[in-house]
């Protein structure tokens, strides 16, 4: 008889012996199993990309890559905020410039100190 065949017979007999385990022991094994399952470590939530009605594609990144991606996302957010702020500032300047250029007074008048003094005196009167 080959080793595998012999081992298979042993396995069959051992499996037969599993039926002889007392019910009380089986109950304790079952209780131990439930206790273990209550403490089971859960899977960490992963990035997921929903597909068209066919479940979701899951991607998991190694820890160092996650840190790099987090930093990159932060830098991208900061750049977007800075760009948006600059854009707003430039738009405000453009409005002032266009108001000045479309006014009857020439822009040089606002740089003239005497003109400013005259405006203050006029408003005082």
């Amino acid at each position: 008889m080959t080793d595998d065949r012999f081992a298979y017979r042993i396995r069959q007999t051992l499996n037969y012996g599993l039926q002889d385990i007392p019910p009380a022991t089986c109950r304790r094994l079952e209780a131990a199993r439930h206790q273990a399952l209550a403490h089971q470590k859960q899977t960490v939530p992963q990035w997921s990309l929903a597909t068209a009605g066919h479940g979701a594609m899951h991607f998991s990144f190694p820890a160092p890559l996650k840190q790099v991606l987090t930093i990159l996302a932060l830098l991208l957010g900061m750049w977007i905020a800075f760009y948006w702020h600059s854009h707003q500032y430039i738009s405000e300047l453009e409005e002032v410039d266009s108001a000045l250029l479309s006014d009857d007074l020439p822009p040089e008048a606002f740089l003239d100190q005497d003109f400013s003094q005259w405006l203050e005196d006029s408003s005082g009167e």
Binding site: L29, A36, H39, K41, V44
Partner: peptide
Amino acid sequence: DEEAALDIVQDSMLKLAEKYGN
């Protein structure tokens, strides 16, 4: 020893679930 064997299996299942459950 039946009691010891039960404790060993219980500990093993608990360790597996706690450390490698995911």
